[in-house]
Design a binder for these strands. Structure first.
Length: 933
RNA sequence: GGUCCGGUGGUGAAACUGGUAUACACGCAAGACUUAAAAUCUUGUGGCAGCAAUGCCGUGUGGGUUCGAGUCCCACCCGGACCACCA
């Protein structure tokens, strides 16, 4: 028979991912090995992944990438005998999902059911080790009941309030948006340029926590880039509000500045077109021009206010302010480059030391005075924009500040201004209060009732949840005029300020719920009289700000979460997610946790002690997007290669925290790797080689790989962990029965040389093993599978069971403890018991073991011996003048003298050295010796 | 404009605290097996020169520090992310 080189072992199974993956997924869930006992766990480890928005067709490989990366960490921690809690759910409320429903022409509720099914199917197919008994969806009334309850807690604390303000409005999505949801002047969801509207809305007072949010960052073990982004977003700045008297008026204009040191260089003042003083100070003959300018500005969005080339425009008010420092008259201008919601809405113009001020001065032909000399020493007049000096320097032309460096001068002038009563030190923030209301349907109704007599009242706890009514007409309505002319926020409105009656604005954004009479009509919880419900819903980001708390208490119905459990499990030990949430979800969640802490609801201020942002998975060199047509959906790959292959391949694309590039060709290679693993184990395990004495190289490689994989997983360098396993596999294969047989067939006589080469076995064993050509010890196979288990959970489980059913002395535990206890690491002893024969495929399912620690994922992570992990033999590089000239194989730890002797004796070195003697010898232990001549 | 990441073979990417550049994989080439293909296996694979031993060059560009630089410093070019007329 010519066909094959060696007999197929009996019962040999080909690697069939489709069958084994479905089998183990089912078994894992049924036996609950990934469901820790939340109340009794001994070593809790909360491994959390940002839950997805089920907003589109399904998860793409970018999502799978993130989930897999998080899951690997969880699997690893579980094998380290932590009680890992790894939950999953859906962030299914909100604009994302509603927009998708709009697109599909379905009711959001109906669409949610479809998406839910599909998302959970995909997540299961990926083989993540979730606790499926504790999933949650934010649109579930059992969940949003508590989202509403949280809103009420904030309201009672004065942290949720209504105010009329200039807010972002998206004309496409027909709702208001928080500042964080406006990206580059556009709506985060649909990309439409947002408008500014003055509307009365619900806000959360996140600004009250600005300093704590900033200061706590220092204590967090988070990806640095996310911390930087949060710092920048909070944008704390120390400066001073300086008041300038207006000539011929009792009014004064207050300007915020961080550079009061340059105040002697002030030549004008600019106030924004929204500024309330405009009417009061503009002289009659300038009034028409000012009004016209202000109206035009009000129509523009923030983005539209930045003209081409930042060309400055403006109008003069006719008034002057007095600079207290030197009595100088500063003309007051109006310009739209000054924003109403930044600082005080007015700036003092120092054109010599601020580029925008310079541009304005040039456009309006205003004087420029130099008051700082930079490091270049240039004291000349500033006439070109490149000369505008904004950096370090020394003060001139500023009387008592002259000669000081700018930092000292800033201090001195602030003290001086405060002393004189002309200014007050002021800290400003970029962070604004969180606009929480949305004029949409698919969200938790804000649980508030408005009574004409009693004002805003919270819905009593017993009446929660305020159910989202099932309505047919759920589509967004948009701006609704209340009879008066629809007009954007502008001059007249500002002038009317002081009257806080919201109806006076003449407009409102109408929510879909407002037309549901039965929903709106209610009674006041305070006086019992007729009242109206709030018809806005809350922002999606409120839903996702507390989900990690709910996961722990999904079965509890009488409170949002169980405090004991939260104390046991929180803060989250490892949180993984996208960097795009740096200033959205991650900031809101921190804020709410602080509020909960202040309310005595939780014991921590910071919800996530460790956070790592994963990188972006791109596809064929470009970001995945529908327009590029390079969005990769995982389903087909899982079907073709199995989830294990996809998982490993995704993790192999690059460093997890830096992202990677998904290419079709690479995945074939990973599938090959797993097939080789399958072959190695399935064809070698049955020899039960346990008396084999491992050679030095084999032993070293095993221990080194254990060390490497553990370290790499810890730092999320999954790509190199897999590479280390591949390298080890390459080595093991050389000693494998299969390879040996093939080599034997190809090259007779290789048998002996292969054995000699590895020198892995003693004589006694050799005689036993030689005929079979396998020199792979079973322990090596087991360790290999354990190290690979987090990456490829199914195939390693299958092979593990294969070995376990076969190898002598390995028995099932029959301790009968509950799963929860066993996973807790209370080392379940392997008492001798029944040995279960390995039954491939579906047969195994029928007789599945109902015992603890049966799974590879419940095995302890292999330990390594540091001595064995360290190399005994090293290749030492011999350099001459820094160039590699020779390599010496030496024992690790060899001394400098010895190496020098060896090096000088080397023929190759002699050739380069000639008669010369090294003037200097640099020696780095176990690395190199450099002879300098 | 500001801040922060990156730039290494044909490709995805490795390189610990400054110490063998290109691990691991893909692709490609040649070979084995096969009627053939697929699959699998073997060998090779940074560039240039050479039959070869070997030599020279080589981590975006130009400088610098150092016995030694992908790694540190300075200047610049390119790509990406976040923020942005923020006073």
């Amino acid at each position: 028979m010519k066909k094959k080189q060696f007999e197929k072992p009996k019962g040999k199974q080909e690697y069939n991912p489709t069958v084994i993956e479905a089998k183990w997924q089912k078994l894992w869930e049924e036996t609950g090995i990934f469901s820790p006992n939340l109340d009794r766990a001994a070593k809790p480890f909360y491994n959390l992944m940002m839950f997805p928005y089920p907003s589109a067709e399904g998860l793409h490989v970018g999502n799978m990438y993130a989930f897999t990366g998080s899951d690997i960490y969880g699997c690893y921690k579980r094998m380290q005998k932590y009680d890992v809690f790894e939950p999953i759910g859906l962030d299914g409320f909100g604009i994302h999902s509603e927009n998708y429903a709009l697109k599909m022409g379905r009711h959001p509720k109906e669409q949610a059911k479809i998406s839910e099914k599909n998302f959970y199917r995909q997540l299961r197919a990926n083989g993540n080790s979730y606790d499926w008994s504790r999933k949650l969806e934010t649109y579930d009334p059992d969940y949003y009941k508590w989202t509403q309850w949280i809103f009420i807690q904030l309201f009672k604390k004065g942290l949720a309030y209504r105010k009329k303000a200039l807010v972002n409005f998206c004309p496409q999505d027909k709702t208001v948006l928080a500042d964080e949801q406006v990206i580059d002047g556009k709506c985060e969801r649909c990309g439409t340029v947002v408008e500014k509207q003055e509307l009365e809305q619900w806000f959360f007072r996140i600004t009250a926590y600005a300093d704590r949010l900033l200061e706590n960052l220092e204590k967090l073990d988070w990806s640095e880039r996310v911390k930087i982004a949060q710092r920048q977003w909070i944008g704390r700045k120390e400066g001073i509000n300086i008041a300038y008297k207006i000539e011929g008026s009792n009014e004064e204009v207050v300007c915020f500045t961080t550079r009061p040191d340059t105040n002697f260089g002030a030549t004008f003042i600019v106030i924004g077109p929204e500024h309330p003083l405009i009417y009061k100070i503009t002289l009659k003959r300038y009034l028409d021009a000012v009004k016209k300018y202000a109206r035009a500005a009000a129509k523009k969005s923030d983005k539209e206010r930045i003209p081409e080339g930042r060309k400055k425009t403006g109008v003069f008010t006719g008034s002057y302010a007095i600079n207290n420092l030197n009595g100088k008259r500063l003309p007051i201008w109006i310009s739209d480059f000054v924003l109403g919601n930044v600082g005080t809405g007015a700036v003092v113009g120092v054109p010599g030391h601020d580029k925008r001020d310079f541009e304005f001065a040039q456009a309006m032909k205003l004087p420029v005075i130099r008051v700082v000399v930079g490091v270049d020493g240039d004291k000349s007049e500033i006439t070109r924009i490149e000369q505008v000096q904004e950096e370090e320097g020394t003060i001139i032309n500023s009387e008592f500040l002259d000669g000081m460096d700018i930092h000292k001068a800033t201090h001195v002038i602030m003290d001086y201004l405060e002393e004189k009563g002309w200014g007050v030190r002021q800290t400003t923030y970029h962070l604004r209060d969180w606009l929480i209301s949305r004029q949409r349907y698919w969200g938790p109704p804000i649980p508030m009732i408005h009574c004409e007599k009693c004002g805003w009242q919270a819905v009593p706890g017993k009446d929660l949840p305020v159910l989202l009514p099932d309505v047919r007409d759920w589509k967004p309505k948009g701006i609704h005029s209340t009879g008066l002319r629809l007009r954007p926020f502008g001059l007249e409105l500002m002038a009317e300020r002081g009257r806080s009656d919201s109806r006076s604005s003449g407009q409102a954004v109408e929510s879909p719920l407002a037309s549901v009479a039965s929903f709106v009509k209610t009674n006041c919880p305070n006086c019992g009289g007729g009242a109206k419900r709030e018809t806005d819903v809350s922002d999606t980001f409120l839903d996702s700000s507390w989900y990690f708390l709910r996961y722990l208490s999904t079965e509890i119905t009488d409170r949002a979460w169980d405090k004991k459990r939260s104390e046991k499990w929180l803060p989250v030990n490892m949180y993984i997610g996208g960097a795009e949430h740096s200033v959205l979800h991650l900031l809101y969640t921190r804020f709410l946790s602080m509020v909960f802490y202040d309310l005595g609801l939780v014991h921590f201020e910071e919800p996530f002690s460790k956070f790592r942002a994963h990188g972006l998975l791109i596809s064929r060199g470009a970001k995945m997007s529908k327009s590029r047509g390079n969005v990769v959906v995982p389903d087909a790959y899982i079907e073709k290669y199995g989830a294990d292959t996809l998982r490993c391949y995704l993790m192999f694309c690059g460093r997890f925290t830096q992202g990677g590039d998904f290419r079709d060709t690479g995945i074939e290679g990973m599938h090959r790797f797993l097939k080789r693993v399958w072959r190695l184990v399935s064809e070698n395990f049955k020899f039960k080689i346990s008396n084999l004495k491992l050679g030095e190289e084999a032993e070293h490689l095993m221990h080194k790989t254990i060390k490497r994989v553990a370290e790499d997983i810890e730092s999320l360098d999954y790509n190199t962990a897999i590479a280390a396993l591949m390298k080890w596999l390459n080595f093991l294969e050389e000693r494998s029965i299969a390879r040996g047989s093939e080599q034997k067939a190809n090259k007779p006589g290789l048998e002996d040389s292969a054995l000699e080469r590895h020198g892995t076995i003693d004589k006694k064993t050799k005689s036993n093993v030689k005929g079979q050509m396998s020199t792979v010890r079973t322990e090596e196979l087991e360790v290999f599978l354990k190290l690979l288990a987090p990456f490829a959970p199914h195939v390693t489980e299958e092979l593990w069971q294969m070995i376990r059913s076969s190898v002598l002395g390995r028995r099932f535990s029959d301790s009968g403890q509950s799963i929860g206890q066993s996973v807790s690491g209370a080392a379940t002893k392997n008492k001798p018991g029944l040995e279960e024969p390995y039954k491939p495929g579906l047969e195994a399912e029928k007789e599945r073991p109902k015992i603890d620690n049966w799974s590879i994922h419940s095995q302890p992570w292999p330990k390594f011996d540091p001595k064995l992990a360290a190399s005994k033999q090293v290749t030492l590089v011999v350099q001459i003048n820094g160039k590699v000239r020779d390599r010496l194989p030496v024992e690790a730890g060899v001394s400098k003298d010895e190496v020098e002797k060896l090096a000088l004796a080397s023929e190759r070195v002699q050739k380069y050295l000639g008669n010369r003697k090294p003037q200097r010898v640099v020696f780095v232990a176990d690395r190199l010796i450099n002879l300098v001549i």
